[in-house]
Amino acid sequence: MLDKADGQIFSGNVRLIHAVGMHARPAVKLTKLAKKFEAQISVRVEGAAEWINAKSVAKIMAMRAAHGSTIEIKASGGSDAEAAVAALVKLIETDFPDEVS
């Protein structure tokens, strides 16, 4: 699922299975997780013109990613870019689970 691009950019694709698409709750979870990483992380709906900062909840909401769309993720910089992509892919793939307390 993950492929290393040239240099230090890591990327991944994942299908959004959340029933209502990228709405408030998933967007909050996604940005919270993204902020745990030092790397710069961008996302977009597959094929969209613009990459969006994965740490901005306002921009993630504005992306209007619908149920069933494919989300592209790329990350660079920091020491954790590869882990960031893997973590975000997992979050979306597992349908934004609540953390186990």
Partner: peptide, 16 residues
């Protein structure tokens, strides 16, 4: 609490 989390996230959104 989960509902209010969205508002907090927006206040913490540096881009915004």
């Amino acid at each position: 609490a989960q509902i209010l989390e969205f508002q907090v996230a927006l206040l913490e959104d540096e881009d915004f």
